[in-house]
């Protein structure tokens, strides 16, 4: 078999695409590992049962919103409010779905549902990158699936590890792990801060979150988030108008 042929078989077989997808997701998995373990540990300290925590990782499968949910559970928030907050926190995934529409066009509904379920920030980032490479290799959904399965397995495994650690060391809540969440979130937000509208959005959200901190049902979070988004959009409009003038 000559070299060109090898490459072709390697890239086009579903299984090799699957593993390639998993391989390319690896760097992002490294970042997700502490995240998942911390989630499991915090869930125990927040008072969630083993089943509830696992259920969340297995069926919701959306890290940021799971963390937010924990902080709301600790604050004693009513469940409809938690579901609504989950909706807002995960709304960005709608944009991912919209991006994937042309790529998933030829797949059957079952495939679409499966891949849509696994459309996390990480898998989206990896898969969309692969789909955008115009090399004409068919069956990229196997690549997407590989990334998704790897993320999913890792996320649930890390949740179990965290849960076990949380149960094994009940005092773990006093180790300051509650700081892990803001620390992780700061690390996620910083790369976003590359433009003035983003800064405006974040500063507004932060300020309003303090001012609206006293609102019932943790409504302050939603108010602050909306204020931040609005500030970002307005700021973007103002800047683009200035550019048009120049």
């Amino acid at each position: 078999m000559d070299k060109r042929n090898t490459i072709f078989t390697r890239k086009s077989s579903p299984l090799s695409q699957f593993f390639e997808g998993a391989k390319d997701t690896f760097p992002l998995i490294v970042g997700a590992i502490p995240f998942g373990i911390i989630f499991g540990t915090l869930a125990t300290t927040a008072g969630l049962s083993f089943g509830a925590t696992m259920g969340m990782s297995m069926f919701v499968f959306a890290g940021a919103s799971q963390f937010v949910c924990l902080s709301l559970v600790v604050a004693g928030t009513a469940w409809p409010m938690i579901v609504l907050t989950t909706f807002v926190v995960n709304l960005r995934h709608m944009l991912y779905g919209a991006t994937m529409v042309p790529f998933y066009k030829k797949l059957n509904p079952l495939w679409k549902m499966l891949l849509a379920f696994g459309l996390t920030d990480e898998t989206f980032a990896v898969a969309v990158n692969r789909y955008n490479q115009k090399d004409g290799v068919p069956g990229k959904h196997y690549y997407n699936l590989g990334s998704m399965v790897f993320m999913y397995t890792n996320w649930n495994l890390c949740t179990i590890i965290g849960l076990t650690a949380g149960n094994a060391f009940p005092g773990i809540s006093h180790w300051g792990l509650d700081f892990a969440m803001p620390a992780t979130f700061i690390g996620i937000v910083i790369p976003y801060l590359v433009s003035k509208p983003m800064w405006a959005s974040v500063i507004t959200a932060g300020t309003v979150s303090i001012m609206a901190g006293g609102l019932p049902h943790k409504l302050g979070l939603m108010v602050a988030a909306l204020a931040g988004v609005t500030a970002g959009v307005i700021c973007e409009k103002v800047f683009s108008r200035k550019k048009e003038l120049v």
Binding site: V88, I188, V202, A205, A224, L226, G228
Partner: peptide
């Protein structure tokens, strides 16, 4: 703007 705004609104308080 949703992800950074939401996360900041959690971080700051």
């Amino acid at each position: 703007y949703v992800p950074p705004a939401v996360l900041t609104a959690i971080i700051v308080p």
